[in-house]
């Protein structure tokens, strides 16, 4: 059985990736065609022609106004996926319709609903409002991961790995050395992991971007909303500085690190990453630096997890992992994911 939760919203793309060109991406084992109508709406439908399953993202298939004309024999589809014309005859078979997917464009992402479309409206789309806010500056990207999405969830829920895998970038000794607090909010469907380092070395990622020299107070507050959206609220400040009682925090630098963890197949993942900041907002050299650094860090994880996937793929069944204190967040996330993969009764 697949471990990919159904009836969930997943990030399929950045809005900037989808325009008047036919765009295809596999999400949760489904090959989906995306394009933008003349009025700017993103549409999502199956990337397989109902006739002889020619991929509609494939030339010479083309977009004519708001219709997709299959490049093989000319079946023509509207923005809702319904077939409006077939070659050589006037009658269009009633069942000629591409599966279409609920889509929401929000916070710079294109979200697609995988599962029973009737459940989409009742399922909230998780938010990452910084990514298209005027008050924040964001850099972002996406890296392909040849590993199952659960490995990336494990990775992101336990940031103690920064000390080892990302030393010299974002890792310092204090990350692995500082205890965490983990909280499961079943009602909100969120796992929270907090690690507050009161007096820590400042890694290059933050010293070069904030200009802080010397030791810092570094807070990492994770909020993971299974299955797809991961937020890391990162607060960097001079040692001793805390937010004011009214909630303002003028002496601190804030970075919102966002990941969207979207299964491509059972054993591969789209690793969307974004870094939003509330300082040096017009400084392009800071943007370039953070983008380059974060991409490097993501690729360090990708390299490690690709290896791990290959190990898991060929290991005999029954391997026993050993969990320690740093794994409390990852274990909580796994439990929530397991619950999401359990079948729910059909909507009547």
């Amino acid at each position: 059985m697949s471990t990919i939760p159904q009836d969930q919203w997943y990030v399929a793309a950045y809005g900037r990736e989808i325009g008047r060109e036919l765009f295809s991406r596999t999400i949760c084992n489904e090959s989906i065609l995306f394009w933008r109508t003349a009025s700017g709406q993103v549409t999502a439908m199956s990337d397989r022609c109902v006739h002889r399953r020619f991929p509609l993202s494939q030339a010479p298939t083309r977009l004519v106004d708001d219709q997709v004309v299959c490049g093989y024999h000319g079946f023509t589809y509207g923005a809702d996926g319904a077939c409006v014309a077939v070659p050589g005859q006037t009658r269009v078979p009633r069942t000629a319709r591409l599966r279409s997917y609920p889509v929401v464009e929000q916070d710079s992402f294109v979200w697609v609903f995988i599962g029973d479309p009737d459940r989409a409206d009742a399922t909230p789309v998780p938010r990452a409002p910084w990514l298209d806010s005027r008050d924040w500056t964001t850099v972002s990207g996406m890296e392909p991961l040849a590993a199952r999405f659960g490995l990336l969830v494990d990775n992101l829920l336990d940031l103690s790995h920064e000390t080892y895998l990302h030393g010299g970038y974002i890792g310092t000794p204090e990350v692995a050395g500082t205890p965490i607090t983990t909280e499961v909010d079943d009602e909100a469907g969120v796992v929270r992991v907090a690690r507050h380092m009161a007096d820590a070395e400042c890694p290059p990622f933050y010293s070069r971007s904030t200009g802080l020299t010397g030791r810092i107070s570094r807070w990492q507050d994770i909020e993971y909303t299974p299955p797809c959206l991961y937020l890391l609220h990162s607060r960097i400040a001079p040692v001793g500085s805390v937010p004011d009682p009214d909630g303002t925090d003028p002496d601190a630098f804030h970075v919102e690190v966002v990941y969207a963890i979207t299964p491509e197949t059972d054993t591969s993942t789209h690793d969307f990453w974004a870094v939003a900041r509330d300082f040096a907002r017009d400084d392009e050299s800071v943007s370039d630096f953070l983008a380059e650094q974060n991409r490097t860090v993501v690729l360090q994880d990708v390299e490690a997890l690709d290896v791990l996937e290959r190990v898991i793929a060929i290991e005999p069944p029954g391997y026993q992992e050993l969990s320690i204190n740093i794994d409390t967040g990852g274990l909580a996330a796994r439990r929530m994911l397991t619950r999401l993969t359990q079948p729910v009764p059909a909507v009547s």
Partner: peptide
């Protein structure tokens, strides 16, 4: 779940 400061214990 809190990792109790100064110990290896979890509360």
């Amino acid at each position: 779940m809190v990792w109790l400061p100064g110990s290896d214990q979890l509360l």
